[in-house]
């Protein structure tokens, strides 16, 4: 038993599974953190809209630069997300329509434009496709040069870590800083925007900053883990966390824990689960992580101690 465990967590584990799991965790937490505020602001679907426009963003970046290196792609995706948010605001104002309809209109259009550009330009030589944007390639982010746990202390081996890992780590630190530094402002303006405005908090600027942070999280995460996890992690861990506690700080703690659990379990089930049923093939880790986060949410809906509504909802 112990031997099995040691083998399971041995050199092969470090080489093939450690980095995907860590990247999965970083991506999940990076999305879940801003997701808490989106959830409470009734903007849970902004994450959905943003992850749909990542595709047109990377296509546009490819059309402009002609390369598929990571940095221009991420900048393109980030810009597309911000353009989408601005367009949603314009459609909302211009058409005087509910946010949901404005979002649906904008993200379907941008997604359609992205797909069409992709089909019309010759991208057969390069590896961007719709499926990649949706699914990511978590399984392929292996640490080729790792020889075991000792490699964690080996600078040469560390230099060959998949670049997604340090990138996501930096983004996660940035998100944690943003939420910590603007904790009061985020909390007050999320609870009572009119009061926040009256005491001098720039609620619009802060709201936009939150969306930009969301977009950065989505863009950094999609490259590694794909859009599905991004959408699922924006919504499911914070929603489940909301059903566990009635305090914002604790809710955020719960959401991080649930995101980590979903990422780890999802990866393990995707990689090893089919083997338990005698299948030699792995299934999509991204899809499985999303599925597990859904199961976590379902359990919270059934048994979460604070699952029932207590206060009246806002009228306006």
């Amino acid at each position: 038993m112990i031997d099995n465990l040691i083998t399971a967590l041995g050199a092969e584990f470090v080489q093939l599974s450690l980095t995907p799991i860590v990247i999965g965790i970083l991506g999940a937490v990076a999305c879940a953190l801003p997701g808490n505020f989106l959830l409470l602001r009734r903007q849970a679907l902004i994450g959905d809209a943003i992850s749909h426009v990542v595709l047109p963003g990377i296509v546009a970046a490819f059309l402009v630069t002609g390369t598929i290196t990571a940095v221009p792609m991420m900048i393109g995706a980030g810009c597309a997300a911000i353009v989408a948010v601005i367009l949603i605001e314009i459609v909302k104002r211009l058409g005087r329509v509910e946010p949901g309809a404005a979002m649906g209109l904008v993200f379907t259009t941008l997604f359609a434009a992205g797909v069409l550009f992709l089909e019309m330009t010759d991208t057969s030589s390069v590896h961007i496709d719709v499926q990649h944007a949706l699914l990511g390639n978590l399984e392929s982010l292996i640490w080729f040069d790792a020889e075991g746990w000792q490699s964690l202390l080996d600078p040469v081996a560390l230099a060959t870590l998949p670049p997604q890992l340090p990138r996501l780590a930096v983004v996660l630190v940035g998100i944690v800083l943003f939420i910590t530094l603007f904790w009061k402002e985020l909390k007050i303006s999320t609870f009572d925007a009119a009061f926040a405005e009256a005491i001098g908090i720039r609620t619009r600027v802060l709201g936009f900053a939150l969306v930009v942070v969301t977009a950065i999280a989505a863009v950094a995460a999609f490259d590694a883990v794909g859009s599905i996890i991004v959408i699922a992690m924006f919504v499911c861990p914070p929603a489940a966390a909301r059903l566990m506690t009635n305090q914002l700080g604790r809710q955020i703690g719960w959401s991080v824990a649930l995101a980590v659990i979903s990422a780890v379990l999802g990866y393990v089930f995707a990689g090893y689960g089919p083997g338990w049923f005698g299948s030699p093939y792995a299934v999509s880790a991204a899809g499985m992580i999303a599925t597990i986060s859904g199961i976590v949410l379902l359990l919270a809906c059934l048994f979460g101690p604070q699952r029932k509504r207590t206060g009246q909802r806002a009228e306006a």
Binding site: K187, F191, F195, T245, N246, Q247, R309, Q312, A316
Partner: peptide, 19 residues
């Protein structure tokens, strides 16, 4: 400024002292 009571979501995860 004290806004209308009904203008906020009282289901927000906060305690009285937090408000």
């Amino acid at each position: 400024y004290v806004p209308q009571r009904a203008s906020v979501d009282w289901d927000f995860p906060a305690r009285v002292i937090d408000v």
